[in-house]
Amino acid sequence: MRRLVLLAALALAVPAQAATLYDDLGGEPVMRRVVEEATKNFLADKRIAVTFGETAIPRFKQLLFEQLCNVSGGPCTYTGRDMAKSHTALKITDAHFSALVEDLQDAMDKEKIAFTTQNRLLAILAPMRRDIVTR
């Protein structure tokens, strides 16, 4: 019984204190810079740069920020199209997806986000590959 009470107390206490992944990543200032840097990397990456040929970059950066913030538990709503619709025409391959991940990792490295924290975010993003990779 005492254990049960302890558990209940823990259950009540934890949500109030638990930092979200978004917080661990550094919150808005850091994630804005990550998006900025990652986008710079995408556009400079000869493996995938061409897929951004018709992309409105400022809007893309806002949407990418919203998405990363949203999936990591931050206070954002993603206002863009779903992953399948926004990528179909680009005929993204497996290797293009990996290239994008590497560019995002480089951006997070630059912001000194811990490797294990990066992986928690990548673990959430990874399954999107099913919708994004169509070729």
């Binding site: 995938i48 061409v50 897929t51 040929g53 018709e54 179909t88 025409a89 680009l90 005929k91 293009h96």
Partner: peptide, 9 residues
């Protein structure tokens, strides 16, 4: 599918 082939890597 508005993107032209030019956006396909």
């Amino acid at each position: 599918s508005v993107a032209a082939d030019s956006t396909i890597a």
